[in-house]
Structures are given as C-alpha cells and as structure tokens.
Amino acid sequence: MSWLTRVRERLPFGNKRESPDNLWIKCPRCQEMVFRTEYEENLNVCPRCDHHGRIGADKRLSQIMDGDDFELLPAPQVSEDPLRFKDTKRYSDRLKAARASNPHNDAFTAAFGTIEGNPAVVGVQDFTFMGGSMGMAVGDAFCNAAQRAIDENCGFVCVTAAGGARMQEGILSLMQMPRATVMTRRLREAGLPYIVVLTDPTTGGVTASYAMLGDVQIAEPDALIGFAGQRVIQETIREQLPEGFQRAEYLHKHGMVDMVVARKDLRETLAQLLDYLTPAKAA
C-alpha cells in the first residue's frame, strides 16, 4: 500500500459522491449549462436565453391539454415498407430503431380531450421519430384526427415538427399532402376551426400542405419554418438571404404566420381561439 493511499484513508473525507450524468443540460443556443429539473419545469425552455427546445408528443399533449385524462386516438394500421426500400439501411430496420426509442408507433400522435374546458382534437408531430417525416401512417393519423374533430364537432389543433415527406415511401408519402389538404377543407365546410402550431423545425412537404392551411397560424419563438433549405434557396436565386430568414419572427413580420406565442402562453392562447372560433352548438 502506497503512502498516498494510507494518507487518504486517514483523512476525514468520504468518497467522492457520484452525480447523475443527466443532471445538467446544455442549451444549444447560448451553450449555458442548466439544471435539467429547472429546464423541464420551465416547459423545456432555456431560462437564460428563452430557447424553445424540441419536445416529444406525450410531453406536448400534457402541456396543452387539461389533465392526463385525454383519449389517445388509435394508431392507424398501414402497409409498412411498401417499396422494400433500402439505402444504407433497410427501411424496416429504421422503423424498428425509431420505435425502440419512442413510445408511439409513428411520428404523428393525436388525442381528444379539452383545453381549458374547450373540446378539441390535438395532433402532434414528433421530430424524434425519423425527423417527424410524413409517410402513410402520418397521413392516416392526420386524416383520422381531423375526422374525429368533425364527429365531435370541435376544433382541431395540429402541432407540426417535420423534415418533410418520408423519402423511403416515395410517391406514397407525397400522396398524403392532398389527402391532408382535403381534410382541412372538410373542417372548414363543417365550420370548425383548424389551428396550426408551427414548431422547430417545420419544413418540406409538411409546410407545403397542412402546416400552412390553418385558420390561425401560430409559431413558437425562433422556430425554423420553410420549404427548401436556406442554402438551396441561396444557390438557386444567387442572392444573400436576410438575417433570420425562415424563422418565426421573420415570417410573422411578413404575414406568413398570425402570431408568435411563447410556450408558457400557448395553452391559454389556444383556449381563447377555440372558445371564439368553435360554433356555440359544440360547447
């Protein structure tokens, strides 16, 4: 036994306490270290710089809807890997990996419940599931959620977060764009509000369809919203794009979204809109 070990044993200090690996979280914007509990209590918003972090479907539903007694709509059953697609991995393997780390079967989860007493169907796109990409399952889930809103005679709130259409399903994924568009038209014909909450990021075919067809367009602060990427646009038009291009505040300034709402105010804002826009007979 070395002298150093003998001295350490006689010192009145205990062993170094182990701290959990997930005790802190690093804000991707300001790079500050924040207590995870503080971060989560602040609705996954950085208390230092107000950066709105990405969250999953379950957490989003619990933040928006009343209590935990909302009804999750059944996940649609669709043909998986219809094209037998394979790039560096098989599509079926990518689906298995995504489901292993996610509580839901695909990227779109919907629920029926209330928002401050106002009946509503809320659909949430989860970016952690294959980038929130829109495939047949997402298209079916969106259409089923819209139909449930029509059946319940209530508003439909859609929270988007996506990288676009799911390339592994080819033209079948692109077909979900007109399908979803038809359902937004049916909601309008029924006189029911369709409210979209654009979160970071909302891009590609989702932006080109149901994400921009709401009666009211809400965006979270600094959310990336667009169709093609900024680099692609710059190379196409051969011009330098303005600072903040495709961010929520820029789109609000130029009339593309109706309001930018902080996450802490989102539930109250949605409740006010539903109360005002939903027909009285649905109350």
Rank of each mutant, 00 (worst) to 15 (best):
K16G: 10
F129N: 11
M1A: 14
L83R: 15
I171A: 13
A223R: 09
P242L: 07
L273P: 03
H52K: 09
G117N: 12
M65F: 06
L192N: 08
K253H: 09
Q31K: 14
R54Y: 00
Q176N: 03
G123H: 06
Y194S: 07
R10G: 00
R84L: 09
N144M: 12
L270Q: 00
G204S: 04
C158R: 02
G164C: 12
Q176G: 03
L4Q: 15
T160G: 00
M134A: 15
K264F: 05
L213P: 01
L23C: 11
S209C: 04
V138D: 09
D87H: 14
L174C: 08
S209A: 09
D140E: 15
A145C: 05
G204H: 03
T278Q: 06
V7D: 12
H252Q: 15
A146E: 10
R60P: 00
K281D: 08
R166D: 09
L73S: 04
M212G: 09
R186N: 12
G205Y: 04
G113F: 02
T184E: 14
A228R: 13
T184G: 09
F227W: 07
E71N: 08
T184I: 10
V232A: 11
G205S: 10
L43Q: 07
T236Y: 08
T37Q: 14
G205M: 08
P12F: 02
T37M: 08
G255Q: 13
L273N: 02
I237N: 08
R90E: 07
R8L: 13
G113Y: 02
Q63I: 03
Q63F: 05
E169Q: 09
L11I: 11
I115T: 11
A248P: 04
L174A: 09
E116T: 01
R166Y: 15
R247G: 02
F70A: 07
A280G: 06
E80D: 13
N105H: 11
A97G: 07
Q230T: 14
G139H: 08
T278L: 03
